[in-house]
């Protein structure tokens, strides 16, 4: 399959990109690496009249350090995270997650922002950045607006972006040195999208005890406070096994999927992510 005929632009500034989007009206589509859009174009699942490639906008590949957070440009590649070329406010967790995304060829071109806007429920960043409670910076004609990732993704492949808007940056808070991160995903084949995935973030100093179940049919499922799952039966001396079994059953019983076997997988993925933070 070959794509339909389309115009291609590669603007150098955010306002130019917004202008192109507005000119194209509904027929324009942002490309931020093209690792999902490319195949969709070839399969003619996407038939835009105009492609606006935003990867040449310098502001979108920059990193800004704030006092308590780091803001990443949306067009920073997975490989840049994997290779440690950008700071990691989550103590190496971003680097670890990035290194497991698809294949190196995809990581070389695929970007963090592109992945979030594509919003495949089984994508690594969707689940892990939801666990980190990332805040998104959306470029608008008026300037920018900010939205939590949890509120940004509405459904599978559906995000809250109005016409003429695009994702410009991702703000991730700096976690404390004692923070612990767990992440487990199960893929049928190395590099494929996950069948089940879960992330856990524990940062007592910031009062964060968060678990996220990904690879669902829709948005990730957030467990805001999992403190009760961290202790075996309420006693800190209890073996982890009991805590993990409880966590597994808790998630499996949520009925995320129609299928009990898939639900059990979600539970097992969550238990394995949890295991990494309580081991």
């Amino acid at each position: 399959m070959k794509p339909v005929d389309f115009r291609y632009s590669r603007p150098g500034t955010i306002p130019e990109a917004i202008e192109l989007l507005n000119e194209g009206a509904g027929g324009a589509k942002i490309m931020a690496g093209g690792q999902s859009l490319g195949p969709m174009l070839n399969l003619r699942l996407a038939q835009p009249e105009q492609i606006v490639d935003i990867t040449a906008i310098p502001a979108l590949t920059m990193v800004t350090e704030e006092r308590d957070a780091v803001v990443f440009g949306a067009c920073i590649t997975h490989a840049a995270f994997e290779d440690g070329r950008v700071p990691d406010p989550a103590n190496g967790f971003l680097r670890r997650v990035a290194g497991g995304i698809a294949y190196r060829a995809v990581r070389n071109r695929g970007t963090i922002g592109g992945s979030l806007v594509h919003a495949d429920p089984a994508a690594d960043w969707i689940t892990t950045l939801t666990a980190l409670d990332a805040e998104l910076i959306v470029a608008t004609a008026q300037g920018e607006r900010r939205v939590a990732l949890e509120a940004f993704m509405m459904m599978a492949f559906g995000v809250h972006l109005d016409d003429g808007e695009f994702l410009a940056g991702i703000r991730i808070r700096k976690f404390s040195p004692a923070a612990r991160f767990g992440y487990y995903k199960f893929c049928r084949k190395r590099g494929e999208f996950a069948e089940a995935m879960a992330a856990v973030v524990i940062d007592p100093a910031l009062n964060i005890y968060r678990g996220v179940i990904g690879a669902t049919q829709s948005r990730p499922l957030v467990l805001d406070d999992i403190r009760d799952l961290l202790r075996g039966g309420g006693e800190s001396s209890a073996p982890n096994g009991a805590a993990l079994a409880r966590a597994r059953d808790r998630v499996a019983d949520l009925g995320i999927d129609d299928d009990p076997i898939t639900d059990a997988m979600h539970g097992n993925a969550f238990a394995r992510a949890l295991e990494q933070v309580i081991a």
């Binding site: 195949p39 049928r188 084949k189 190395r190 494929e192 999208f193």
Partner: peptide
């Protein structure tokens, strides 16, 4: 597509 039709890779 090869997203749904899985062939073994080197791993």
């Amino acid at each position: 597509t090869f997203m749904d039709y899985i062939i073994p890779g080197p791993c």
